[in-house]
Computed example of a mutant assay.
Amino acid sequence: MQALFVHGMGRSPLSGWPLLWQLKRAGLKTSTYGYSVSLEDFAGIKARLVSTISALAELGDYVLIGHSLGGVLLRAAVNGLPPGVRSPHHVFLLGSPLQPTLLAQRLGTNPIYRTLTRDCGQLLGSVTRMAEIGPVSAPTTGIAGVRGLSGKRSPFSGELNDGVVSISEVSAEWLTDQVRVPSVHTLLPSSKRVGDIILERVARHDEKGGRFIS
């Protein structure tokens, strides 16, 4: 089984090193995909990712792991795969928004945010563009951190969150399942529990029905 990791906005492929090391030790063949939101727009990053996934699919079964914006890119790329390309065995979304995010909407007009995040930052706050990406047909597990601030100091009005996105922003009915872990957004790819979840799902997947078995 192959595993491709796509990092979040403002991070690098190195952010997934702890997770990938755990998966590699368990027998998966791991790889990463890198991009820069300050140098590329969403469409360009997606196009390169489609090519990367297509090449990966030729080598056999694979899973996709996306942290934050990386998960958004993965959904867009999977939905843009050419006909005949092998679908992913499973998709794992780590703190990846499925709805426009509150923080991106609040920061959308901030000149520093716009300069650093450019097109991808605007996409994360856009109702129309986020809706256009849509769900993926492959089994998909959402992994949500719940160690963000709560109460009056939280921008999420008391809702569970990881400090960057809230539970509602990473939730959707089409997810195969969702698991909550005691982590903040940035540290999700460093969480051993996240690695355990991925390995459990890979091991328990029913190849025939596309669902989980005990």
Rank of each mutant, 00 (worst) to 15 (best):
Leu123Thr: 12
Met1Gly: 12
Gly16Val: 05
Ile143Leu: 10
Ser36His: 06
Met1Pro: 11
Glu132Pro: 07
Arg153Gly: 08
Asp162Pro: 04
Val6Glu: 01
Gly70Arg: 14
Pro18Val: 04
Leu81Ser: 12
Gln22Arg: 14
Gly108Asn: 10
Gly121Val: 08
Ala3Lys: 00
Arg201Cys: 06
Leu103Lys: 04
Ser54Met: 10
Leu4Val: 09
Trp21Val: 11
Ser183Arg: 06
Ser12Lys: 09
Phe92Cys: 08
Val165Ser: 00
Arg204Pro: 03
Glu173Tyr: 08
Asp41Gln: 09
Gly158Ser: 04
Arg204Leu: 14
Leu116Pro: 02
Ser36Glu: 06
Phe212Ile: 13
Val179Leu: 11
Val179Gln: 11
Ala77Tyr: 02
Cys120Tyr: 01
Ser191Ala: 14
Ser54Lys: 15
Leu81Ala: 11
Phe92Lys: 08
Phe5Tyr: 15
Ser126Asp: 12
Ser126Tyr: 10
Leu102Val: 12
Leu116Met: 13
Gly158Met: 05
Gly108His: 05
Ile65Lys: 00
Leu74Phe: 11
Ser15Glu: 14
Val165Lys: 01
Trp174Pro: 02
Ser154Thr: 10
Thr109Trp: 09
Lys192Val: 08
Pro83Gln: 11
Leu94Pro: 00
Asp162Ala: 04
Asp196His: 09
Arg48Ser: 00
Arg75Phe: 10
Asp177Pro: 02
Tyr113Met: 11
Val146Thr: 13
Trp174Asp: 05
Phe212Glu: 12
Leu49Ala: 01
Ser191Cys: 14
Asn161Pro: 05
Gln178Tyr: 03
Glu58Ile: 08
Ala144Val: 13
Pro182Cys: 04
Ser157Asn: 11
Leu94Gly: 04
Ile143Asn: 02
Arg75Gln: 11
Thr186Trp: 08
Thr186Ile: 12
Ile112Glu: 11
Leu149Ala: 15
Arg147Trp: 10
Thr109Ser: 14
Asn161Val: 08
Ser190Lys: 09
Pro189Glu: 13
Ser166Met: 03
Leu175Gly: 08
Pro82Trp: 12
Gly70Phe: 06
Tyr113Asn: 07
Cys120Ala: 15
Leu94Thr: 11
Leu160Pro: 04
Ser31Ala: 15
Gly80Thr: 11
Pro97Glu: 01
Pro135Gly: 05
Gln178Phe: 03
His205Asp: 04
Val181Gln: 03
Ser96Leu: 07
Glu40Pro: 00
Arg75His: 10
His185Pro: 01
Ser214Ile: 10
Gly34Arg: 12
Ser137Met: 07
Leu175Asp: 06
Asp177Val: 09
Val50Asp: 01
Gly27Met: 00
Gly195Gln: 07
Thr141Ile: 07
Arg114Pro: 05
Val63Leu: 13
Ile198Ala: 11
Val170Tyr: 00
Ile65Arg: 01
Leu49Pro: 00
Arg75Met: 07
Pro82Gln: 10
Tyr35Trp: 03
Ser157Lys: 06
Gly34Gln: 01
Arg153Ile: 15
Val50Ile: 15
Val164Ser: 03
Gly151Ile: 05
Gln178Leu: 14
Lys192Tyr: 06
Leu103Gln: 09
Val165Leu: 05
Leu64Arg: 02
Lys192Ala: 11
Ala172Asp: 15
Val85Ala: 09
Leu14Tyr: 10
